[in-house]
Amino acid sequence: MDVLLVAVLLFYLSSAIYAIITLTMEQPPARTNQRLRVLVAIGFAVHSASIALSWKQLGHFPVVNLKEVCSFLAGAIAAYYLIFVPRDKARALPIFVLLCSFLLILVSLLLPDEPLSLTLSSAISASPFTKVIFPIHVTMLMFSYAAFVVTVAGSAMYLLQERQLKTKHFGAAFRWMPALNTCDELSYRSLTIGFVLLTLGVLTGMMWGSQHDGRFWHNDPKEVLALVTWFVYLAMIHYRVTAGWRGRRVAWMAIGGFVAVLVTFIGARAMGGYHVFG
């Protein structure tokens, strides 16, 4: 499987390089975007095959340790880009997204494989229902993280450019970055999608818990942190809808929200609890 993963790594890397080269061209060749998407799609297909293969070999959904989570998240980010990112507008975005996927796979390849813990194993295979709900729970959350990665990319591009427009010092990358409104829309759209997926992920987690041991809430650090993250994003959407907040303030909030995601993602591992896998 690692061989397949190395192939995937190369696909994501070469698409990132293709995206960089065409971005800096005065006039990129025709159908650049379609070609890029095809390249990413092939990488994603190989990636999916490698995950399916692991699933078959291991007998359980293969996203139970950090190594596997990194790889799965990389795929989710690529898939998110293919499905949800509008076609032509933000030409600088794929670079960010693809480099993210590339790095995550690199990390995944370098991390050691940890065996499935007994507690988790029993939680997954407690009943036919938990066997089904586990992959759904994980997939929802991974895709919500992918959406938040795109949100952060949009926000970062917004902040960088906003700063240059305000200070009137235009750096080299200025020309290639999408317009402020495009960044803002992209960011907000991904934020909403990510929020919906996060909600579904948390809900499926609760359903799983209540099926497994009768409790939908365990006071697990990850659960608490996820709730905090959820409220941060809820607040952002609330102010956007009611007060029309947008621009710099929202971009900073999106970055703050992402820090909460990172803390949830990595921090919970350090704090113990049964969500230790990622």
Binding site: Q161, L165, A179, N181, T182
Partner: peptide, 8 residues
């Protein structure tokens, strides 16, 4: 410059 803000 306006295009940098409004896109179109």
């Amino acid at each position: 410059l306006a295009r940098k803000v409004f896109d179109t």
